[in-house]
């Protein structure tokens, strides 16, 4: 089946197996390996990308379901000048990552939270991260980073 979409601002058109997942499409077809796959049960959130501006788990969508959409992955989040997105910068500032495997999903989810809920507090952010697992950080730096970026978004 054909799928035509925009990924990180680039128009892409490919023939794919109908059962190919969006995550596989990004990783294996486009070699955008920043999007990670950490589970097979839609639990971990390592695979989160933005589909038409909203966070989705790319392991839970077929590639063909993204037909006609705009997809942003972690590779496309920073500005074209290379300036980090405020959530990326906040992750660095607050030590929100260790091994970095959950990080792309956490950052994409964080950007989504900040967009939806400027000024989100600690408790809100923790609740919003229900679908993202990190094994390294104890979430402390991740939550601090998102709360910080959300505060910046409000001001």
């Amino acid at each position: 089946m054909n799928v035509t979409l925009t990924v990180n601002g680039q128009a892409i058109s490919r023939d794919v197996e109908p059962r190919m997942l969006l995550a596989e499409f990004l990783r294996d077809e486009l070699r955008l390996t920043g999007t990670h796959v950490g589970c097979d049960t839609t639990q971990c959130g390592c695979c989160i990308v933005h589909l038409d501006g909203e966070a989705v788990k790319s392991c839970t969508l077929f590639a063909v379901q993204a037909d006609g959409s705009k997809v942003t992955t972690i590779e496309g989040l920073a500005g074209t000048d290379g300036a980090l997105h405020p959530v990326q910068a906040a992750f660095r500032e607050h030590h929100g990552l260790q091994c970095g495997f959950c990080t792309p999903g956490m950052v994409m989810m964080g950007a989504d939270i900040v967009r939806r809920i400027p000024g989100a507090d600690d408790e809100t952010v923790r609740h919003e991260l229900e679908g993202n697992i990190c094994r390294c950080t104890g979430y402390q730096g991740i939550v601090e980073a998102i709360v910080d970026a959300a505060a910046q978004a409000r001001s």
Binding site: L32, T33, G34, I74, L84, F91, G100
Partner: peptide
């Protein structure tokens, strides 16, 4: 690691 350039 924040920009998707990690290599696992």
């Amino acid at each position: 690691l924040l920009t998707g350039k990690g290599r696992y």
